[in-house]
Deep mutational scan, measured.
Amino acid sequence: HMTFVALYDYVASGETDLSFKKGERLQIVNNTEGDWWLAHSLTTGRTGYISSNYVAPSD
């Protein structure tokens, strides 16, 4: 899985979204569905959809 880092804080707007904080590391589970990616937070252990605009590759 690809690992990304959050560029900004994000508060989930629905049950399927994932809230995260700036600097949080996220593993991308599925990024084939446009701008919203299914991600797993390595910080909180939660999984949900994130906006690809809010993250950048961590490598």
Rank of each mutant, 00 (worst) to 15 (best):
E24Y: 01
N30W: 09
V11Y: 09
L18S: 02
S19I: 05
M2G: 10
T43I: 09
V29R: 06
S13N: 10
L26F: 15
D9K: 00
T43C: 12
W36M: 13
T47E: 07
E24K: 00
L38N: 01
S58L: 15
N30T: 10
D17Q: 15
V11P: 04
E24L: 02
G23M: 03
L18Q: 01
R46S: 07
K22M: 07
M2S: 10
H40K: 15
S13R: 13
D35F: 09
W36H: 09
V5P: 01
A6T: 13
D9M: 06
D35N: 10
G45T: 02
G45S: 04
Y8E: 10
S13A: 11
L26R: 00
A56W: 09
A12I: 06
T32K: 11
D17Y: 15
S41V: 01
S41D: 02
T32Q: 12
M2W: 10
N53T: 11
Q27G: 04
T32F: 10
G45K: 05
V29P: 04
P57F: 10
D59F: 13
D17H: 14
T3Q: 11
L7A: 04
S58I: 15
T3Y: 15
I28S: 05
D35G: 11
F4C: 07
N53D: 13
G45Q: 05
H1F: 13
V11N: 10
S52M: 12
V11S: 08
T47F: 12
H1L: 12
P57I: 11
S51Q: 15
G23E: 01
N53L: 14
V55R: 01
L18Y: 02
I50N: 00
T16C: 15
G34S: 10
S41R: 01
D59I: 12
N31T: 13
T3E: 13
L18F: 07
T3H: 11
S51G: 07
I50L: 07
A39T: 03
S13L: 12
P57E: 09
Y54P: 02
T3P: 04
Y49S: 03
T16H: 14
V55A: 05
I50A: 00
G45H: 09
D59V: 12
E15I: 09
E24D: 11
L42C: 12
G45Y: 03
S58D: 15
F20H: 01
Q27K: 11
I28C: 12
D9E: 05
Y54F: 13
M2E: 10
D17L: 13
A6M: 04
A12T: 04
G48V: 02
T47S: 09
A12M: 04
L7D: 03
S52Y: 07
H40C: 13
T44A: 02
L26G: 04
K22S: 05
F4K: 02
H1T: 12
S19T: 08
E33S: 12
